[in-house]
Every structure is written in structure tokens, then in C-alpha cells.
Amino acid sequence: MTAILLPFTGGRVTLKQGGGGRAMRALIERLFVRDFATMPFDGVGVDAMDDGAAIRIGDDWLVITTDSHVIHPIVFPGGDIGRLSISGTVNDLAMMGATRVLGLTCSIILEEGFSLDSLEAIQRSMIATCREANAPVVTGDTKVMGRGEIDGLVINTCGIGLTRTLVRDNGLHTGDRIIVTGNIAEHGLAVMAARHGIEFEGDLVSDVAPMNGMIDSILSDAALADAVTAMKDPTRGGVASALHEMASKSNVGIVLQERSLPMTDAVRSVGELLGIDPLHVANEGKALLGVRADAVDQILARLHEHPLGRNATVIGTCGEERRGAIILDTGFGRRLLAEPEGEPLPRIC
């Protein structure tokens, strides 16, 4: 037997470019943003690279967002691809202020041979999540591809919502506080352990959930809404990646208090076992809010009333030092926080 040569010609897309963080942003910027953004458009468009787009309609903003969901395994502790596909899109709308969803589309591409029982279970999970988010699926599409042409199934959802209070991810000002709405890193670690067959017993479950209800409890109160300067959900790339984006778009530096970061013992422990920094790990039911200092207590109190926001806490402050960067204060010392590159993987050293 002789060694078979792999085709080495030309570059190829690597998984790193889908993992959030620098590599992915570079790919998107080079491939899509530069050219798509040349067409005239009134509102928040693709070049803003926000959670979605916003189109002005009279006094309102129509917010629109789309997301394709692929996840392995399809069912993971705390959720499945169905719940993820609804929550992800509802949350992207909510992060721009569109907490009341007008409608969702759902497009499914299936691999030949996919189990109908699994498909039904996913569909039931989607419906349950839609009810939770009060977000109806209003149209959809289904395609089947040959065996091996895709891996299981892909779900694309698109969502639209109207809002008067458009919230961006670039509105942070010096003095604003950063709130995270609950314990971090649960989704990414739970999925990673399941994906790589690393067996744990204990409380390691994804936080995947639609957050529009929780966000609405803030934004529907005009006094509180006015104090929210920026929002973003820390999905792929985790809190570290989302804060970098917010800091650099807002041109502020963020001092992050490491010891304030809310996380369960299970997350802390699995993070240490696998050598993964929880700040780099995806969340699917948490939001980062930039909030004016004078309204912090009221907003925290309101978040604490919501089941998804019980562990909300202040984790950082915006300032003028190191604009665009995140300074991690560990209690021992201070250090610039790196932006994650690609998906974090279990490591040995």
C-alpha cells in the first residue's frame, strides 16, 4: 500500500472559520460584508455586523435576522437543535430590541435516511419553544439531500419583529456597566462534552432558551429602556468574543471583574478539567447588557424577577483605558483578555 495523497491545491475553509472569533469575522468581512454593503440602504445593514438588520418603517424599525443551525449531537443535555433554532433567532431579534416577534420562517434540509421519529421530536421541541417565546412560525421549506451530502439536518430560521427602541451593540459609553443575565458557558460546555463523548454526571446542561420575554420586561419600561445602551448575546466565541465586538464598535475599553463572573461549580470544574476558559464558551440563553450606571440597580432588580435572569449580575465597567480591548481584573492582577480563535477544544496542556 502506498500513501494516498490528499488534494493539497488551493485553500479550504476550516472549522476554525465557523467557531466565532477572529477567524470567522475575517472570513465574513472579506467574503460578504465588503461587497454587499456597497448597495444603498437606510438602516442597520450587513456592514454593521450586528445581531440582525433594522429597516426604518415610519417611526418603527423592522428588525430582521437569519441563522442556520447545525449542531452535533442534535440532542444534547438541556435541549436540541429544534429549541436552538427557534431560540437563536428570537434572541437575535431581542438583542436589537424587537422582543415581540411578528413571525418566523423555518427551512429544513434533511439527509436521506434521517429518522422520522427524531424529526418529529425536533418539531415538537420547536413548537414548544415557539409557544414559550410567543413567536409563530408562519412559513417554511423542506428539502431532502442524498445520503452523505449533508450531516443529518440543517435548520434555517429567519425572524422579523417591530420595535420603537432599537438597541445596538455599539452604544457603550464610558461609565456604563456591563450586566450578564446569568451563569455563563453552560451551552458550549454541555454540547462539547456530549460531542466528544466525554462523560460527566452532574449539572452540566445547555442554557438554550428564548430571552425575548426577559428583555421585554426591561424594554417595555421606557425609563429602563432608555438606560440600556447596548445589547448582545454571547453565543459562539462566548462572553470574550461578544465583549470584544461591543468594545471595539463602541470605542470603549471594558474592565471585566473575573471574580464577578457568574458560573456554576460544574462549569468551573469542567472548564478546568478540559482546559477551556468559560469566557470563550458559547451561551444560548444569556445576554450582555450595557447599562447606564444610575439605572443598574433597577435593571438588575427587574432581571431578577424573571426566571432566566435570576443570576444576573454586573461583571464590568466601560472606560477610556485601552479602547477596543477587554481588561480582565483577576483580583491578583490585570491583563488584556484575548479574543478566542475558533472553537475551544479539550486540551491536555
Binding site: F200, E201, G202, D203, D265, A266, R268, S269, V270, L273
Partner: peptide, 11 residues
Amino acid sequence: AVVDFWGVRKE
């Protein structure tokens, strides 16, 4: 051994 690492157990 089944070992408890502060909240998660692993073999």
C-alpha cells in the same frame, strides 16, 4: 473510580 470534581462526576 467515580470522582467528584466540585459538582460533576467523572470516571
